[in-house]
Write a protein that binds this DNA or RNA. Structure first.
Length: 229
DNA sequence: GTCCCGGGCG
DNA sequence: CGCCCGGGAC
């Protein structure tokens, strides 16, 4: 599907905003697939602030996927202790063993192959393919889902999951480096501005292209509230 | 204290 | 669709 002009402007503004607004996070500094995998497993269930505490320790203790594969379950669980969702630590360990023994320690770069691994669903597969290997594929997590629904959705019908993935596919730049930035930027916008409870629409780089903002403004005009520009 | 949030899985 | 498990908003 081709991109319309509105979508092009949306992507451009998003990327410009990301350049100045992005937080510096350790897993954004690396293209090491294993490091990115570990960060994604942790981020599936935990806020950034806590992952910042666990991620460096985990990487220091298990520096490679082979090192993780060779480790005792007890040692892995110790590093995960306090993060919750312990099935994921077991999945990560199982994944490391599979990749170490059957794939020479090389994580696949193909989302379909990634998704066959334990604990890796559609989102994590896309995230690893894009963030580690610069594949121009979408990665739709809850943040991205929320941003897309608000910007491109309408009031009556919520967008279905398949619809959101299709929309994300049309928006992702074809260039790998730009795709990386786009996916990071979508999540950053969802985390910092387009938040679940009270979105900070005043600070939003794409408010002029957003149907949600448009809906808010028309509602406020009807009820005589101040225009939230 | 109570409620809400979240990827993947069964 | 409910569960896993902790944090944070209210």
């Amino acid at each position: 599907m081709a991109m319309d002009d509105q979508s092009r402007v949306f992507v451009r503004k998003l990327l410009i905003w990301y350049k100045k607004a992005a937080r510096e996070l350790p897993w954004r500094d690396t293209r090491n697939p294993y490091a990115i995998l570990v960060s994604e497993f942790m981020l599936q269930q935990t806020q950034v602030s806590r992952v910042l505490e666990y991620f460096p320790r985990f990487m220091a203790r298990f520096p490679t996927i082979d090192a993780l594969a060779r480790s005792r379950p007890k040692a892995v669980m110790e590093q995960w202790d306090g993060l919750g969702y312990y099935a994921r630590a077991r999945n990560l360990h199982a994944l490391a063993k599979v990749v170490s023994r059957t794939l020479h320690g090389q994580l696949p770069d193909d989302p379909v192959q990634l998704q066959e691994l334990p604990g890796v669903g559609k989102y994590t597969a896309g995230a690893v393919a894009c963030f580690a290997y610069q594949k121009a594929v979408p990665a739709v997590d809850t943040n991205v889902r929320r941003v897309l629904s608000r910007v491109f959705g309408n009031a009556k019908f919520g967008m279905r999951n398949a619809e959101l993935w299709r929309l994300a596919s049309t928006l992702v730049p074809k260039n790998g480096e730009r795709a990386w930035k786009f996916n990071q930027a979508m999540m950053e916008l969802g985390a910092l501005v387009c938040t679940a409870r009270v979105p900070k629409c005043q600070d939003c780089p794409v408010k002029k292209h957003c149907r949600y903002t448009a809906r808010l403004n028309s509602r406020n005009r009807i009820h005589g509230r101040a225009h939230p520009e």
